[in-house]
Amino acid sequence: MLKVLLIDDEERATDALRLMIEKTVPAIQQVMVCNDPRKAADIITAYQPALVFLDIQMPHLNGFELMEKIPNKNFKIIFTTAYNEYAIQAIRFSAFDYLLKPIDVEELQGCVQRFLENNEDYQQQYALLKNIIHNIQAPSPSEFRLALPTKAGVHFLVPAEIIRCESLGNYTKFFMENGRTYLISKTLGEYDVLLTPHHFIRTHKSHLVNKRFIAFIDHDGFAVLKDSSKVEVSRRRKDEVMQSLK
């Protein structure tokens, strides 16, 4: 039996999500609501939900502070927020699930489906949650850490130490300054969106490169990087790449 808890200070917000779950997500049999974040910890202990939908901005205790107060987080957390660009960036850098209000039915169903299909690793979730809090508290997004979840565990990378990413089908390979590489089962496009604001440039459909590591563009049109690797630059992107090196 799947039990969920909705935490949001705004009654209309929990009401909307509860009604939407009741009407469109038959897999969830029980919905409990909490409108006071200060009471949430007790409710979680007593009710033992499998899934918690958690608003970020709340009076008294925000979503992150609340989670720090709960010792055994053996439930999956899905953040909900109406608008908070900074927090959303921090969450996306941790590969954490979140929903934007007003919530899209299909996105909600997708979240629940993923939860049902995967065996949640709550230790991993805890590491990712800590990373969100690290990112949120960072003085600027340049100090965000990017979480790369793998079966063996999560790697946390500083964007400035990533030389480049390469697309290998549905996988992305990361090449680090210290020579390490990581193979992650996500497409390059997902990292393109995240890393472009961190001085990365898509030189080719298979390559995302940290601009700081580009040494020069050779006569054959390849970008030569400071670790002396060569990366293809597509003809259409050449001008943009040259421009960004100035």
């Binding site: 909307a16 608008y83 934007l100 209000k101």
Partner: peptide
């Protein structure tokens, strides 16, 4: 404030669902 705008839209969604 965009936060206000989206929260407002969210309450409309609730009213429709209810």
């Amino acid at each position: 404030n965009p936060h206000f705008l989206f929260n407002a839209l969210n309450s409309v969604q609730q009213m429709i669902l209810a």
